[in-house]
Design a protein around this nucleic acid. Structure first.
Length: 495
RNA sequence: CGCGGGGUGGAGCAGUCCGGUCAGCUCGGUUGGCUCAUAACCAACAGGUCGCAGGUUCAAAUCCUGCCCCCGCAACCA
Protein backbone atom coordinates (compact mmCIF):
# COMPACT_ATOMS: atom_id res chain seq x y z
CA UNK A 1 0.00 0.00 0.00
CA UNK A 2 1.49 3.28 -1.14
CA UNK A 3 1.65 6.44 0.81
CA UNK A 4 -1.52 8.48 1.03
CA UNK A 5 -1.48 11.85 -0.64
CA UNK A 6 -3.55 14.88 0.23
CA UNK A 7 -4.22 17.89 -1.96
CA UNK A 8 -6.28 20.89 -0.98
CA UNK A 9 -7.86 23.82 -2.81
CA UNK A 10 -8.76 27.24 -1.46
CA UNK A 11 -12.35 27.46 -0.33
CA UNK A 12 -14.10 30.32 -2.14
CA UNK A 13 -16.31 32.82 -0.40
CA UNK A 14 -19.89 32.23 -1.42
CA UNK A 15 -20.99 35.84 -1.77
CA UNK A 16 -20.87 35.45 -5.53
CA UNK A 17 -20.91 32.83 -8.21
CA UNK A 18 -17.95 30.66 -9.17
CA UNK A 19 -15.51 32.17 -11.62
CA UNK A 20 -12.67 30.97 -13.77
CA UNK A 21 -10.16 31.33 -10.94
CA UNK A 22 -12.02 28.81 -8.83
CA UNK A 23 -12.18 26.51 -11.82
CA UNK A 24 -8.41 26.78 -12.19
CA UNK A 25 -7.90 25.67 -8.58
CA UNK A 26 -10.10 22.65 -9.10
CA UNK A 27 -8.47 21.79 -12.38
CA UNK A 28 -4.87 21.95 -11.17
CA UNK A 29 -5.68 19.89 -8.12
CA UNK A 30 -7.48 17.36 -10.26
CA UNK A 31 -4.60 17.00 -12.71
CA UNK A 32 -2.22 16.38 -9.86
CA UNK A 33 -4.61 13.91 -8.28
CA UNK A 34 -5.09 11.93 -11.46
CA UNK A 35 -1.36 11.85 -12.07
CA UNK A 36 -0.66 10.48 -8.62
CA UNK A 37 -3.47 7.95 -8.82
CA UNK A 38 -2.22 6.79 -12.18
CA UNK A 39 1.02 6.01 -10.37
CA UNK A 40 -0.71 3.96 -7.75
CA UNK A 41 -1.07 6.49 -4.97
CA UNK A 42 -4.23 6.94 -3.02
CA UNK A 43 -5.17 10.59 -2.99
CA UNK A 44 -7.55 12.63 -0.92
CA UNK A 45 -8.69 15.81 -2.62
CA UNK A 46 -10.64 18.45 -0.75
CA UNK A 47 -12.81 21.31 -1.96
CA UNK A 48 -15.25 23.48 -0.04
CA UNK A 49 -16.85 26.82 0.61
CA UNK A 50 -16.29 29.65 3.06
CA UNK A 51 -19.67 30.80 4.31
CA UNK A 52 -19.33 33.13 7.26
CA UNK A 53 -18.79 36.86 7.54
CA UNK A 54 -20.52 40.18 7.15
CA UNK A 55 -20.76 40.17 3.40
CA UNK A 56 -22.75 36.97 3.50
CA UNK A 57 -25.00 38.30 6.24
CA UNK A 58 -25.57 41.46 4.24
CA UNK A 59 -26.42 39.58 1.06
CA UNK A 60 -28.79 37.38 2.96
CA UNK A 61 -30.51 40.38 4.49
CA UNK A 62 -30.80 41.89 1.03
CA UNK A 63 -32.51 38.76 -0.16
CA UNK A 64 -34.72 38.79 2.90
CA UNK A 65 -33.58 35.44 4.23
CA UNK A 66 -31.38 34.27 7.05
CA UNK A 67 -27.69 33.70 6.36
CA UNK A 68 -27.86 29.95 6.65
CA UNK A 69 -30.60 29.67 4.05
CA UNK A 70 -28.66 32.04 1.87
CA UNK A 71 -25.50 29.96 1.97
CA UNK A 72 -27.57 26.82 1.53
CA UNK A 73 -28.41 28.02 -1.93
CA UNK A 74 -25.06 29.63 -2.70
CA UNK A 75 -22.67 26.76 -2.11
CA UNK A 76 -24.02 24.34 -4.68
CA UNK A 77 -22.77 26.18 -7.79
CA UNK A 78 -19.20 25.84 -6.55
CA UNK A 79 -19.58 22.14 -6.15
CA UNK A 80 -21.17 22.02 -9.57
CA UNK A 81 -18.28 23.97 -11.05
CA UNK A 82 -15.75 21.51 -9.65
CA UNK A 83 -17.71 18.67 -11.19
CA UNK A 84 -18.13 20.51 -14.45
CA UNK A 85 -14.36 20.79 -14.90
CA UNK A 86 -14.08 17.09 -14.19
CA UNK A 87 -12.60 17.26 -10.72
CA UNK A 88 -12.78 14.00 -8.88
CA UNK A 89 -12.59 15.45 -5.40
CA UNK A 90 -13.05 13.16 -2.44
CA UNK A 91 -14.18 15.62 0.21
CA UNK A 92 -16.38 18.66 0.26
CA UNK A 93 -16.71 20.98 3.23
CA UNK A 94 -18.78 24.00 4.14
CA UNK A 95 -17.61 26.18 7.00
CA UNK A 96 -21.17 26.23 8.27
CA UNK A 97 -21.14 22.46 8.80
CA UNK A 98 -21.77 21.91 12.53
CA UNK A 99 -18.92 19.44 12.59
CA UNK A 100 -16.54 21.98 11.16
CA UNK A 101 -17.62 24.61 13.66
CA UNK A 102 -17.01 22.25 16.55
CA UNK A 103 -13.56 21.49 15.22
CA UNK A 104 -12.80 25.17 14.83
CA UNK A 105 -13.77 25.82 18.43
CA UNK A 106 -11.58 22.97 19.52
CA UNK A 107 -8.68 24.42 17.56
CA UNK A 108 -9.29 27.82 19.14
CA UNK A 109 -9.09 26.31 22.58
CA UNK A 110 -5.89 24.52 21.73
CA UNK A 111 -4.49 27.82 20.53
CA UNK A 112 -5.31 29.57 23.80
CA UNK A 113 -1.70 29.83 25.00
CA UNK A 114 -0.95 31.84 21.88
CA UNK A 115 -4.02 34.06 22.00
CA UNK A 116 -4.30 37.44 23.69
CA UNK A 117 -6.80 40.26 23.72
CA UNK A 118 -5.96 43.69 22.46
CA UNK A 119 -7.60 46.82 21.18
CA UNK A 120 -7.91 47.42 17.48
CA UNK A 121 -8.35 50.96 16.33
CA UNK A 122 -9.29 51.98 12.84
CA UNK A 123 -11.69 53.68 10.46
CA UNK A 124 -15.12 52.18 10.68
CA UNK A 125 -18.18 52.54 8.48
CA UNK A 126 -21.38 51.82 10.33
CA UNK A 127 -23.22 51.10 7.09
CA UNK A 128 -20.71 48.52 5.94
CA UNK A 129 -20.08 47.31 9.46
CA UNK A 130 -16.45 47.06 8.60
CA UNK A 131 -13.09 48.66 9.18
CA UNK A 132 -11.12 50.21 6.38
CA UNK A 133 -7.43 50.80 5.98
CA UNK A 134 -5.90 54.23 6.09
CA UNK A 135 -5.22 53.95 2.43
CA UNK A 136 -8.81 53.21 1.48
CA UNK A 137 -10.02 56.02 3.68
CA UNK A 138 -7.57 58.36 2.06
CA UNK A 139 -8.58 57.28 -1.41
CA UNK A 140 -12.21 58.08 -0.72
CA UNK A 141 -11.59 61.32 1.16
CA UNK A 142 -12.91 59.84 4.34
CA UNK A 143 -16.36 59.13 2.96
CA UNK A 144 -17.64 55.64 2.37
CA UNK A 145 -18.54 55.32 -1.30
CA UNK A 146 -21.29 52.83 -0.56
CA UNK A 147 -23.06 54.79 2.11
CA UNK A 148 -21.95 58.35 1.61
CA UNK A 149 -21.18 58.66 5.29
CA UNK A 150 -17.97 59.63 7.05
CA UNK A 151 -15.77 56.92 8.47
CA UNK A 152 -15.54 57.02 12.24
CA UNK A 153 -12.45 56.45 14.28
CA UNK A 154 -13.44 53.48 16.36
CA UNK A 155 -11.73 50.99 18.55
CA UNK A 156 -12.79 47.51 19.49
CA UNK A 157 -11.43 44.56 21.37
CA UNK A 158 -10.03 41.74 19.28
CA UNK A 159 -8.41 38.49 20.08
CA UNK A 160 -5.00 38.15 18.47
CA UNK A 161 -3.01 35.10 17.53
CA UNK A 162 0.57 35.56 18.58
CA UNK A 163 1.88 34.40 15.25
CA UNK A 164 5.14 36.15 16.07
CA UNK A 165 5.90 33.22 18.38
CA UNK A 166 6.51 31.16 15.28
CA UNK A 167 8.57 33.49 13.15
CA UNK A 168 11.71 31.37 13.30
CA UNK A 169 9.96 28.10 12.71
CA UNK A 170 8.04 29.44 9.74
CA UNK A 171 11.03 31.11 8.21
CA UNK A 172 13.17 28.02 8.59
CA UNK A 173 10.47 25.80 7.12
CA UNK A 174 10.24 28.02 4.07
CA UNK A 175 13.96 28.53 3.60
CA UNK A 176 14.73 24.83 3.89
CA UNK A 177 11.82 23.87 1.63
CA UNK A 178 10.41 21.71 4.39
CA UNK A 179 7.36 23.71 3.49
CA UNK A 180 8.16 24.43 -0.12
CA UNK A 181 6.60 27.45 -1.75
CA UNK A 182 6.21 27.07 -5.48
CA UNK A 183 7.22 28.95 -7.55
CA UNK A 184 10.56 30.10 -6.24
CA UNK A 185 9.90 33.81 -6.77
CA UNK A 186 6.84 33.63 -4.56
CA UNK A 187 8.97 32.03 -1.88
CA UNK A 188 11.26 35.06 -2.02
CA UNK A 189 8.27 37.35 -1.74
CA UNK A 190 7.05 35.62 1.38
CA UNK A 191 10.48 35.56 2.98
CA UNK A 192 10.75 39.24 2.29
CA UNK A 193 7.38 39.83 3.93
CA UNK A 194 8.49 38.19 7.15
CA UNK A 195 12.03 39.49 7.24
CA UNK A 196 11.12 41.68 10.21
CA UNK A 197 9.18 38.89 11.85
CA UNK A 198 5.70 37.49 11.49
CA UNK A 199 3.00 39.92 12.60
CA UNK A 200 0.33 38.89 15.04
CA UNK A 201 -3.06 38.33 13.52
CA UNK A 202 -6.44 39.58 14.65
CA UNK A 203 -8.69 36.55 14.77
CA UNK A 204 -11.97 37.76 16.26
CA UNK A 205 -14.56 40.51 16.06
CA UNK A 206 -17.05 41.72 18.64
CA UNK A 207 -20.39 40.08 18.04
CA UNK A 208 -21.98 43.46 17.48
CA UNK A 209 -19.73 43.98 14.46
CA UNK A 210 -19.74 40.44 13.14
CA UNK A 211 -22.88 38.50 13.72
CA UNK A 212 -22.45 35.62 11.31
CA UNK A 213 -19.61 33.39 12.36
CA UNK A 214 -18.38 30.78 14.77
CA UNK A 215 -18.64 31.93 18.41
CA UNK A 216 -15.43 32.26 20.34
CA UNK A 217 -15.44 29.59 23.05
CA UNK A 218 -16.22 30.96 26.52
CA UNK A 219 -16.73 34.51 25.33
CA UNK A 220 -20.18 35.09 23.89
CA UNK A 221 -19.33 38.68 23.02
CA UNK A 222 -16.87 37.61 20.34
CA UNK A 223 -17.08 35.82 17.06
CA UNK A 224 -14.21 34.33 15.09
CA UNK A 225 -12.92 36.28 12.18
CA UNK A 226 -12.17 34.44 8.97
CA UNK A 227 -8.69 33.03 9.58
CA UNK A 228 -9.11 30.33 12.18
CA UNK A 229 -12.49 29.40 10.79
CA UNK A 230 -11.71 29.13 7.09
CA UNK A 231 -8.12 27.89 7.10
CA UNK A 232 -8.95 25.12 9.52
CA UNK A 233 -11.15 23.51 6.91
CA UNK A 234 -8.08 21.76 5.54
CA UNK A 235 -7.84 19.59 8.60
CA UNK A 236 -11.42 19.54 9.81
CA UNK A 237 -12.52 18.07 6.49
CA UNK A 238 -10.30 15.03 6.96
CA UNK A 239 -11.58 14.43 10.45
CA UNK A 240 -9.28 16.34 12.75
CA UNK A 241 -9.13 15.89 15.70
CA UNK A 242 -11.15 12.82 16.56
CA UNK A 243 -11.64 10.76 13.43
CA UNK A 244 -9.05 8.01 13.26
CA UNK A 245 -7.61 8.57 9.81
CA UNK A 246 -6.78 12.25 9.49
CA UNK A 247 -3.23 11.45 10.47
CA UNK A 248 -2.90 9.33 7.36
CA UNK A 249 -3.34 12.44 5.25
CA UNK A 250 -1.86 15.32 7.20
CA UNK A 251 0.48 17.03 6.48
CA UNK A 252 -0.93 17.80 3.07
CA UNK A 253 1.35 17.08 0.16
CA UNK A 254 0.27 20.19 -1.64
CA UNK A 255 -2.06 23.07 -0.96
CA UNK A 256 -3.13 24.89 -4.09
CA UNK A 257 -3.95 28.58 -3.79
CA UNK A 258 -4.12 31.70 -5.91
CA UNK A 259 -1.24 34.14 -5.61
CA UNK A 260 -3.48 36.63 -3.83
CA UNK A 261 -4.00 34.41 -0.82
CA UNK A 262 -0.59 32.81 -0.67
CA UNK A 263 0.48 34.88 2.30
CA UNK A 264 -2.35 33.60 4.43
CA UNK A 265 -1.42 30.06 3.58
CA UNK A 266 2.31 30.53 3.93
CA UNK A 267 2.28 32.60 7.12
CA UNK A 268 -1.02 32.67 9.03
CA UNK A 269 -1.96 29.06 8.46
CA UNK A 270 1.43 27.70 9.51
CA UNK A 271 1.17 29.79 12.68
CA UNK A 272 -2.14 28.14 13.47
CA UNK A 273 -0.76 24.70 12.73
CA UNK A 274 2.31 25.22 14.87
CA UNK A 275 0.08 26.61 17.60
CA UNK A 276 -1.85 23.36 17.79
CA UNK A 277 1.21 21.18 17.32
CA UNK A 278 0.66 19.95 13.80
CA UNK A 279 3.14 19.65 10.95
CA UNK A 280 3.23 22.14 8.12
CA UNK A 281 2.09 21.26 4.62
CA UNK A 282 4.89 19.98 2.42
CA UNK A 283 4.23 22.23 -0.50
CA UNK A 284 2.16 25.25 -1.34
CA UNK A 285 1.51 25.94 -5.00
CA UNK A 286 0.63 29.53 -5.80
CA UNK A 287 -0.83 29.83 -9.27
CA UNK A 288 -1.33 33.10 -11.08
CA UNK A 289 -4.34 34.88 -12.44
CA UNK A 290 -6.04 34.56 -15.76
CA UNK A 291 -6.21 37.72 -17.80
CA UNK A 292 -8.47 38.22 -20.74
CA UNK A 293 -6.82 39.93 -23.64
CA UNK A 294 -4.13 41.18 -21.30
CA UNK A 295 -6.58 42.84 -18.94
CA UNK A 296 -7.63 41.85 -15.48
CA UNK A 297 -10.94 40.07 -15.37
CA UNK A 298 -13.57 42.28 -13.87
CA UNK A 299 -17.29 42.33 -13.68
CA UNK A 300 -17.51 46.02 -14.47
CA UNK A 301 -15.39 45.66 -17.59
CA UNK A 302 -17.56 42.69 -18.48
CA UNK A 303 -14.78 40.46 -19.71
CA UNK A 304 -15.80 37.53 -17.59
CA UNK A 305 -15.07 34.13 -19.07
CA UNK A 306 -17.54 31.49 -18.08
CA UNK A 307 -15.98 28.02 -17.96
CA UNK A 308 -19.41 26.61 -18.71
CA UNK A 309 -19.50 28.38 -22.03
CA UNK A 310 -16.10 26.97 -22.99
CA UNK A 311 -17.00 23.47 -21.94
CA UNK A 312 -20.42 23.48 -23.54
CA UNK A 313 -19.08 24.63 -26.89
CA UNK A 314 -15.77 22.81 -27.14
CA UNK A 315 -15.94 19.97 -24.66
CA UNK A 316 -14.42 19.34 -21.28
CA UNK A 317 -11.03 18.20 -22.50
CA UNK A 318 -10.61 21.28 -24.65
CA UNK A 319 -11.18 23.42 -21.58
CA UNK A 320 -8.77 21.41 -19.49
CA UNK A 321 -6.23 21.56 -22.28
CA UNK A 322 -6.13 25.31 -22.66
CA UNK A 323 -6.17 26.08 -18.98
CA UNK A 324 -3.45 23.64 -18.12
CA UNK A 325 -1.17 24.25 -21.08
CA UNK A 326 -1.65 27.82 -22.15
CA UNK A 327 -2.14 29.24 -18.70
CA UNK A 328 1.28 28.63 -17.12
CA UNK A 329 0.91 26.64 -13.93
CA UNK A 330 3.01 29.02 -11.88
CA UNK A 331 2.32 32.37 -13.44
CA UNK A 332 -0.35 34.59 -14.91
CA UNK A 333 -1.84 33.59 -18.23
CA UNK A 334 -4.03 35.05 -20.88
CA UNK A 335 -7.28 33.88 -22.36
CA UNK A 336 -9.02 35.11 -25.46
CA UNK A 337 -11.54 33.22 -27.52
CA UNK A 338 -9.26 33.56 -30.53
CA UNK A 339 -6.27 32.09 -28.72
CA UNK A 340 -8.41 29.38 -27.28
CA UNK A 341 -9.94 28.43 -30.58
CA UNK A 342 -6.69 28.40 -32.50
CA UNK A 343 -5.15 26.19 -29.83
CA UNK A 344 -8.16 23.94 -30.17
CA UNK A 345 -8.09 23.72 -33.95
CA UNK A 346 -4.35 23.90 -34.44
CA UNK A 347 -3.17 21.67 -31.64
CA UNK A 348 -5.97 19.40 -30.51
CA UNK A 349 -7.55 18.90 -33.92
CA UNK A 350 -4.66 19.08 -36.35
CA UNK A 351 -1.83 17.71 -34.29
CA UNK A 352 -3.33 15.21 -31.93
CA UNK A 353 -6.78 14.37 -33.29
CA UNK A 354 -5.66 14.08 -36.86
CA UNK A 355 -2.69 11.93 -35.92
CA UNK A 356 -4.92 9.44 -34.17
CA UNK A 357 -7.27 9.12 -37.11
CA UNK A 358 -4.32 9.01 -39.45
CA UNK A 359 -2.87 5.98 -37.73
CA UNK A 360 -6.21 4.33 -37.11
CA UNK A 361 -7.22 4.77 -40.75
CA UNK A 362 -4.06 3.15 -42.05
CA UNK A 363 -4.49 0.20 -39.75
CA UNK A 364 -8.06 -0.19 -40.92
CA UNK A 365 -7.27 0.25 -44.56
CA UNK A 366 -4.12 -1.82 -44.86
CA UNK A 367 -4.64 -4.47 -42.20
CA UNK A 368 -8.40 -4.71 -41.85
CA UNK A 369 -8.13 -3.02 -38.48
CA UNK A 370 -5.78 -5.53 -36.96
CA UNK A 371 -2.95 -4.01 -35.01
CA UNK A 372 0.23 -6.01 -35.15
CA UNK A 373 2.44 -6.97 -32.29
CA UNK A 374 3.09 -3.90 -30.17
CA UNK A 375 6.52 -4.33 -28.70
CA UNK A 376 6.78 -3.00 -25.22
CA UNK A 377 9.37 -0.46 -24.30
CA UNK A 378 8.84 3.10 -23.38
CA UNK A 379 10.12 6.36 -24.62
CA UNK A 380 12.12 8.18 -22.04
CA UNK A 381 9.66 10.14 -19.94
CA UNK A 382 11.98 11.76 -17.44
CA UNK A 383 11.27 15.25 -18.64
CA UNK A 384 7.53 14.64 -18.51
CA UNK A 385 7.69 13.19 -15.04
CA UNK A 386 9.82 15.87 -13.54
CA UNK A 387 7.54 18.54 -14.99
CA UNK A 388 4.55 16.79 -13.45
CA UNK A 389 6.24 16.48 -10.07
CA UNK A 390 7.30 20.11 -10.09
CA UNK A 391 3.96 21.55 -11.07
CA UNK A 392 5.02 22.67 -14.50
CA UNK A 393 2.05 21.25 -16.28
CA UNK A 394 2.50 23.57 -19.22
CA UNK A 395 6.03 22.25 -19.68
CA UNK A 396 4.84 18.66 -19.45
CA UNK A 397 2.64 19.38 -22.43
CA UNK A 398 5.61 20.54 -24.45
CA UNK A 399 7.10 17.14 -23.99
CA UNK A 400 3.87 15.38 -24.93
CA UNK A 401 3.65 17.46 -28.05
CA UNK A 402 7.18 16.60 -28.98
CA UNK A 403 6.15 12.96 -29.20
CA UNK A 404 3.11 13.88 -31.27
CA UNK A 405 5.23 15.87 -33.66
CA UNK A 406 7.90 13.17 -33.86
CA UNK A 407 5.34 10.57 -34.75
CA UNK A 408 4.07 12.71 -37.60
CA UNK A 409 7.63 13.12 -38.80
CA UNK A 410 8.27 9.43 -38.46
CA UNK A 411 5.29 8.59 -40.62
CA UNK A 412 6.42 11.10 -43.20
CA UNK A 413 9.81 9.46 -43.27
CA UNK A 414 8.75 5.83 -43.35
CA UNK A 415 5.77 6.40 -45.65
CA UNK A 416 3.55 3.46 -44.68
CA UNK A 417 1.32 4.19 -47.68
CA UNK A 418 4.20 3.36 -49.99
CA UNK A 419 5.11 0.24 -48.08
CA UNK A 420 1.51 -0.80 -48.49
CA UNK A 421 1.73 -0.43 -52.25
CA UNK A 422 4.89 -2.46 -52.50
CA UNK A 423 3.39 -5.45 -50.75
CA UNK A 424 2.64 -7.44 -53.93
CA UNK A 425 6.26 -7.29 -55.05
CA UNK A 426 8.12 -7.29 -51.77
CA UNK A 427 7.42 -10.26 -49.50
CA UNK A 428 8.88 -8.49 -46.48
CA UNK A 429 6.76 -5.40 -46.87
CA UNK A 430 3.80 -6.87 -45.05
CA UNK A 431 5.76 -7.42 -41.87
CA UNK A 432 7.52 -4.13 -42.20
CA UNK A 433 4.24 -2.26 -42.52
CA UNK A 434 2.81 -4.09 -39.58
CA UNK A 435 5.81 -3.13 -37.46
CA UNK A 436 5.58 0.49 -38.47
CA UNK A 437 1.90 0.77 -37.67
CA UNK A 438 2.26 -1.13 -34.43
CA UNK A 439 4.99 1.25 -33.41
CA UNK A 440 2.74 4.19 -34.21
CA UNK A 441 -0.12 2.70 -32.23
CA UNK A 442 2.18 1.97 -29.35
CA UNK A 443 3.46 5.55 -29.31
CA UNK A 444 -0.07 6.89 -29.33
CA UNK A 445 -1.03 4.72 -26.40
CA UNK A 446 1.88 6.03 -24.47
CA UNK A 447 0.90 9.55 -25.39
CA UNK A 448 -2.57 8.78 -24.12
CA UNK A 449 -1.09 7.77 -20.79
CA UNK A 450 0.75 11.05 -20.50
CA UNK A 451 -2.40 12.86 -21.50
CA UNK A 452 -4.54 11.05 -18.99
CA UNK A 453 -4.19 13.45 -16.03
CA UNK A 454 -5.07 16.37 -18.29
CA UNK A 455 -7.51 14.98 -20.82
CA UNK A 456 -8.99 11.87 -19.27
CA UNK A 457 -11.77 11.59 -21.86
CA UNK A 458 -9.38 11.81 -24.77
CA UNK A 459 -6.95 9.36 -23.23
CA UNK A 460 -9.79 6.92 -22.80
CA UNK A 461 -10.91 7.31 -26.41
CA UNK A 462 -7.41 6.67 -27.71
CA UNK A 463 -7.26 3.53 -25.64
CA UNK A 464 -10.61 2.37 -26.95
CA UNK A 465 -9.35 2.81 -30.48
CA UNK A 466 -5.93 1.24 -30.16
CA UNK A 467 -5.65 -0.87 -27.05
CA UNK A 468 -7.75 -3.82 -28.06
CA UNK A 469 -5.82 -5.25 -30.96
CA UNK A 470 -8.45 -4.24 -33.48
CA UNK A 471 -9.38 -0.73 -34.51
CA UNK A 472 -13.13 -0.12 -34.45
CA UNK A 473 -14.59 0.17 -37.92
CA UNK A 474 -15.86 3.70 -37.58
CA UNK A 475 -14.18 6.35 -35.51
CA UNK A 476 -15.46 9.74 -34.52
CA UNK A 477 -12.94 12.56 -34.81
CA UNK A 478 -11.47 13.33 -31.39
CA UNK A 479 -11.69 17.08 -31.92
CA UNK A 480 -13.88 18.21 -34.81
CA UNK A 481 -12.98 21.64 -36.13
CA UNK A 482 -14.89 24.51 -34.58
CA UNK A 483 -14.92 28.05 -35.91
CA UNK A 484 -16.92 30.28 -33.64
CA UNK A 485 -14.40 33.03 -33.01
CA UNK A 486 -11.85 32.65 -35.78
CA UNK A 487 -12.43 32.55 -39.53
CA UNK A 488 -12.84 29.18 -41.16
CA UNK A 489 -9.94 29.04 -43.60
CA UNK A 490 -11.85 26.77 -45.92
CA UNK A 491 -14.87 28.96 -46.09
CA UNK A 492 -14.70 31.42 -48.93
CA UNK A 493 -15.97 34.60 -47.39
CA UNK A 494 -17.99 36.66 -49.80
CA UNK A 495 -18.83 39.83 -48.04
C1' C B 1 15.44 55.05 -3.35
C1' G B 2 8.76 50.02 -0.73
C1' C B 3 8.49 44.68 -2.99
C1' G B 4 8.07 41.39 -7.12
C1' G B 5 7.47 40.04 -12.42
C1' G B 6 8.41 41.52 -17.38
C1' G B 7 10.52 44.38 -22.04
C1' U B 8 13.98 38.83 -27.52
C1' G B 9 11.84 38.64 -35.69
C1' G B 10 4.19 40.43 -37.31
C1' A B 11 1.90 37.74 -32.53
C1' G B 12 2.88 34.58 -28.14
C1' C B 13 7.14 32.72 -25.63
C1' A B 14 12.12 29.88 -24.26
C1' G B 15 17.10 30.99 -23.37
C1' U B 16 19.67 35.02 -18.62
C1' C B 17 21.30 31.55 -12.30
C1' C B 18 26.53 28.35 -14.65
C1' G B 19 29.16 34.40 -20.45
C1' G B 20 31.26 31.41 -26.24
C1' U B 21 28.31 25.40 -29.06
C1' C B 22 22.32 31.15 -29.08
C1' A B 23 19.97 33.97 -31.58
C1' G B 24 15.84 29.03 -30.37
C1' C B 25 10.41 27.36 -30.26
C1' U B 26 5.11 27.79 -31.55
C1' C B 27 1.60 30.60 -34.50
C1' G B 28 1.28 33.65 -38.79
C1' G B 29 3.70 34.64 -44.10
C1' U B 30 6.06 32.56 -48.69
C1' U B 31 7.59 28.25 -51.49
C1' G B 32 7.88 23.18 -52.17
C1' G B 33 6.67 17.90 -50.92
C1' C B 34 3.08 14.16 -49.81
C1' U B 35 -1.75 11.89 -50.41
C1' C B 36 -2.37 7.58 -44.96
C1' A B 37 -5.32 11.47 -42.22
C1' U B 38 -10.15 16.09 -39.40
C1' A B 39 -8.16 20.43 -46.95
C1' A B 40 -4.67 17.43 -42.17
C1' C B 41 0.80 16.34 -42.20
C1' C B 42 6.22 17.08 -43.61
C1' A B 43 10.25 20.28 -45.45
C1' A B 44 12.66 24.79 -46.82
C1' C B 45 12.83 30.08 -46.90
C1' A B 46 11.99 35.27 -45.40
C1' G B 47 11.95 38.16 -40.89
C1' G B 48 15.24 40.26 -34.83
C1' U B 49 20.80 46.71 -33.25
C1' C B 50 17.75 40.32 -27.67
C1' G B 51 14.01 48.13 -23.94
C1' C B 52 18.02 52.39 -23.87
C1' A B 53 23.05 54.11 -22.52
C1' G B 54 27.64 53.03 -20.55
C1' G B 55 31.18 49.32 -18.44
C1' U B 56 33.89 44.38 -17.61
C1' U B 57 35.87 40.60 -21.11
C1' C B 58 39.47 37.70 -26.38
C1' A B 59 33.94 37.07 -26.26
C1' A B 60 27.45 39.47 -23.41
C1' A B 61 20.49 38.42 -24.68
C1' U B 62 23.49 36.20 -20.63
C1' C B 63 27.87 39.67 -15.67
C1' C B 64 28.18 45.11 -13.51
C1' U B 65 26.21 50.42 -13.31
C1' G B 66 22.56 54.02 -14.57
C1' C B 67 17.99 55.09 -17.01
C1' C B 68 13.10 54.36 -19.59
C1' C B 69 8.52 51.64 -20.21
C1' C B 70 4.56 47.81 -18.95
C1' C B 71 2.08 44.64 -15.20
C1' G B 72 1.00 42.99 -10.35
C1' C B 73 1.42 43.45 -4.88
C1' A B 74 1.83 46.87 -0.69
C1' A B 75 -0.98 42.74 5.13
C1' C B 76 -6.96 41.73 7.71
C1' C B 77 -8.35 42.16 0.40
C1' A B 78 -10.24 34.42 0.49
Amino acid sequence: MGKNFYVTTAIPYVNGTPHIGNALDYLLADIWTRYQMQNGRSVRFQIGTDEHGNKIAAKAAEAGIDPQSYTDQMYAPFKAMAEKVGSEYTDFIRTTDPKHQQTVQYIWQKLTPHIYKDVYEGWYCTGCEAFYTDKEVEATNGVCPNHGTQYERLSEENYYLRASDFTDQIRRAIESNKMQIIPEFRKSEILDMIKDGVKDVSISRPRKHLGWGVPVPNDPEHVMYVWVDALSNYISVIGYPDSPDWQDFWPADVQIVGKDILRFHAITWPAILLGIGLSLPKRILAHGFINVGGAKISKTVGNIVDPNEVIDNYGLDAFRYYFSRHIPTQDDGDFTWEKFESAYNGELSNDLGNLVSRVAAMITRYQAGVIGDMKSGEHDMKQYRSSMENFEFDIAFDYIWETVRSLNQYLEQVKPWEIAKSRDKDPEATDHLSDVLAHAARTLLQTADMLHPFLPGTAKKIHEILANGVVPSSIEPLFPKIYLHTPDPHQKTTT
